[in-house]
Simulated scan of single mutants.
Amino acid sequence: MKKILAALVAIAALTVAVPAVGADLGARPYYNKAPAYAAPIYNWTGFYIGGHLGGAFTGSHDFNGAVLSDSSARLLGGVQAGIDWQFAPNWVLGTEGQYSWLGKNNLTATFPGGYVYTNDQRGLGSITARLGYTWGPGLVYVKGGYAYSDNSERLTLAGAPIPFLLDGNHSNGWTVGGGVEYMFAPNWSVKGEYMYYDFGSTRFVSPAALAPFGSFHNDDHTLKAGVNYRFNFAGPVAARY
Rank of each mutant, 00 (worst) to 15 (best):
V9M: 12
A10Q: 04
A10G: 05
A23T: 08
L25A: 14
L25M: 15
Y30D: 02
K33F: 12
A34V: 13
A39P: 02
Y42W: 07
T45D: 07
G51C: 01
H52R: 04
G54H: 06
G54W: 07
T58S: 15
F63E: 01
F63I: 02
V67G: 05
D70Q: 13
S72M: 05
S72L: 07
A73E: 06
L75S: 07
L75N: 01
L75W: 02
G78P: 06
A81K: 02
D84P: 05
W85A: 04
L93I: 15
G94V: 04
E96Q: 14
E96R: 11
F111N: 06
Y117R: 03
T128P: 00
T128F: 00
W135A: 13
V140A: 15
Y146H: 05
A147E: 05
S149G: 15
D150V: 11
N151P: 03
E153C: 01
F164Q: 01
V176G: 12
E181Y: 14
M183Q: 14
W188E: 09
V190T: 13
K191M: 12
E193H: 06
E193C: 06
D198C: 02
F199T: 07
F199D: 10
G200F: 09
T202N: 03
V205T: 08
S206P: 02
A208S: 12
L210A: 03
F213T: 07
D219Y: 12
Y229I: 13
N232H: 11
Y241Q: 14
